[in-house]
Design a protein around this nucleic acid. Structure first.
Length: 567
RNA sequence: UGUCCGAUGGUGUAACUGGCAACACAAAUGAUUCUGGAUCAUUAGAGUCUAGGUUCGACCCCUAGUCGGACAACCA
């Protein structure tokens, strides 16, 4: 009877995504001597986000799976936008995600000389020319997707003149924008990228690596494919929008006569309740809608890290969403599931009360302090136990008490009994309210001394278990309750007259002062805890020994709020 | 009036490459629980964009269409 099930399981494990299928096919056919070599090629002009994480996991994952290699290469062909700050953050993020490019850190700028040589080859073959038109003129004569373009009047310059002009461009004889080098392909091509694309432009700009060595820079299209070729990349994996560029890359490779990698395109990641474009993320930072690239509400890797996400959870997320070519928008709740799943197993529990209300246990001795024993992680016995002090006056969560509860409410209410986690069963006797506001100031209870955790009597059934913290021993800490940055599933689809910024969630951050059990004082930056019955929290780097700061990573799954909603 | 790509439960990804749609999340129900968490069990939900065709048999192949996306930076 076990046979069919086993078979089923194997099948699931073996099911390949379309890229793996291509690779396995290539390996089988001995393509590139069955070598697998990928690369992650970011432009250092911004911070990496969860979409890049998908690509990183894909590229490094593939080489790991097939015993290959993955390079990290910065496509730094536009010095006006690129900065070392970004290079550093990208390397940090890739490392943090758990990947290693070993000694294969490259830059497209490493290849500038070689690329220049390739351009000269094209010129000599009569396949490239120097064009003196302005950017506007070039754009106007390019035509539209449905209308062919017009030839440049400079298209038929002699090879000698082109060689000379291109050399003088390099030598710095011409001002920015005065001339470009263009490929000579086909102005009537239905593929816009084939209409004599620009190969080199003049930019008298300092480059973060080559300094002032160059004043002409290759366009991305002229650098990317050849860089992959130079690095002997076997499978150049990129996102869908470069599909249209592929014929151009193939043309370059063929005309120059160099090794041809195989480009495979996949659909980029989109996620609900967030934006993913670098431009929009930059705007959020610049306009102060978030505190920075690493604001815990940002979908950036550094933002997720600060929020409290673990590399494992992100890798697992990337694995779970899969790879395909169709457009997709992944529900953030899947990301949230991944971090809960991870933290449930790893995070120690703590009692923290975010919105405290005082409980006085009338029959508990005034000065008595009992050391209660609590399990650190019920999912992992090796995490051990800790002590926490119990006293006559404690705090519980304000919404764990209702004066007039519905019968589905399992928590504290007048005349009802409830268990205090790792302590006693208490019964609510009466409440004390502020005569003016009507707000509850104290809830008076009695405890049953025979029901201390672990005692035989403690097995008595009560409907609910509450977390609590001793008034006397609690530590005040700052807790930042983060929520989704946008209120709309897809902020990119703003209605007429609105932009994504009109859908910012005004409640994406609430700061509260919480009372937490004393064990919290050992918390280290980035350490994760589960606040019992509330959610997962991570220590922010703003935290100090005197003033602890926690970020809410994600709340616990809450089926009670669903019950409430149904009403 | 173009070229390229795509279309499978609410979301995402599969389907031994032509053998009668599965997995994860989300949802529901129950059990269990000193977290309304976790865990376990169970259930519901698509007949694969449409119309034809090939075939004993089509998510898979062919044809035509529909819808969605990408492409007109001296950006990447």
């Amino acid at each position: 009877m076990e046979e069919p099930r086993k078979k089923e399981e194997e099948k699931i494990i073996r099911s390949l995504n379309f890229i793996e299928e291509i690779i396995e096919n290539d390996i089988r056919n001995g393509v590139n001597d069955s070598r697998v070599h990928t690369r992650f090629p970011p432009e250092p002009n911004g911070y990496l986000h969860i979409g890049h994480a998908k690509s990183i996991c894909l590229n490094f994952g593939l080489s790991k799976k097939y015993n290959g290699k993955t390079n990290l290469r910065f496509d730094d062909t536009n010095p006006v936008k690129e900065e070392v700050e970004y290079v550093d953050s990208i390397m940090e993020d890739v490392k943090w995600l758990g990947f290693d490019w070993e000694d294969r850190l490259f830059y497209a700028s490493d290849y500038f000389e070689q690329l220049y040589g390739y351009a000269v080859i094209l010129i000599r073959k009569g396949k490239a020319f120097v064009c003196d038109m302005t950017a506007e003129e070039i754009s106007e004569t390019r035509g539209t997707p449905t209308r062919p373009g017009k030839e440049s009047p400079f298209r038929h310059r002699s090879v000698e003149e082109n060689i000379d002009l291109f050399a003088r461009m390099r030598a710095g004889e011409f001002p920015d924008g005065s001339r470009v080098l263009r490929a000579k392909i086909d102005l009537t091509s239905p593929n816009m990228h084939m209409r004599d694309p620009v190969l080199y432009r003049i930019l008298h700009t300092h480059h973060h690596r080559t300094g002032n060595q160059w004043c002409i820079y290759p366009m991305y299209d002229f650098a990317h494919g050849q860089s992959d070729s130079i690095e002997r990349i076997t499978h150049s994996i990129c996102t869908l929008e470069f599909e249209v560029h592929r014929p151009l890359y193939d043309w370059f490779i063929h005309e120059i006569g160099i090794y041809a990698p195989r480009q495979i395109e996949f659909a980029r990641l989109n996620m609900t309740y967030t934006v993913m474009s670098k431009r929009k993320l930059l705007e959020l930072v610049r306009d102060g809608n978030v505190t920075g690239w690493d604001d815990p509400r940002m979908p950036t890797i550094c933002g997720l890290r600060r929020r409290g996400y673990t590399p494992e959870s992100i890798r697992n997320f990337a694995e779970t969403i899969g790879v395909a070519k169709r457009d997709n928008i992944i529900d953030v709740s899947l990301l949230e599931f991944c971090i809960r799943e991870d933290l449930n197993k790893r995070a120690n529990r703590l009692m923290a009360v975010l919105d405290p209300v005082k409980i006085v246990i009338d029959n508990y001795p005034e000065e008595l302090v009992e050391e209660m024993e609590a399990v650190n992680n019920p999912e992992d016995e090796t995490k051990g136990k800790r002590k926490l002090p119990f006293t006559k006056t404690i705090f519980i969560e304000r919404d764990d008490f209702m004066e007039d509860p519905p019968n589905k409410f399992f928590r504290l209410a007048p005349g009802r009994e409830v268990r205090l986690k790792a302590a006693y069963i208490i019964k609510c006797e009466h409440v004390v309210k502020d005569p003016k506001t009507g707000e509850i100031e104290e809830i008076h209870c009695t405890y049953d001394p025979l029901t201390k955790s672990g005692m035989p009597e403690s097995n008595r059934k009560v409907k609910g278990t509450l977390h609590w913290v001793s008034e006397k021993y609690a530590i005040k800490t700052e807790v930042r309750l983060y929520d989704r940055l946008f209120v709309m599933e897809n902020p990119d689809e703003a209605e007429e007259g609105k932009t994504y910024l009109d859908y910012l969630n005004p409640d994406s951050l609430k700061i509260v002062t919480a009372m937490i059990e004393p064990a919290v004082k050992n918390a280290q930056i980035l350490e994760k805890y589960q606040f019992e019955r509330i959610g997962y929290f991570s220590v922010d780097h703003d935290s100090t020994a005197q003033n602890l700061v926690f970020n809410r990573v994600v709340s616990l799954k809450d089926s009670w709020s669903k019950v409430e909603k149904v009403k």
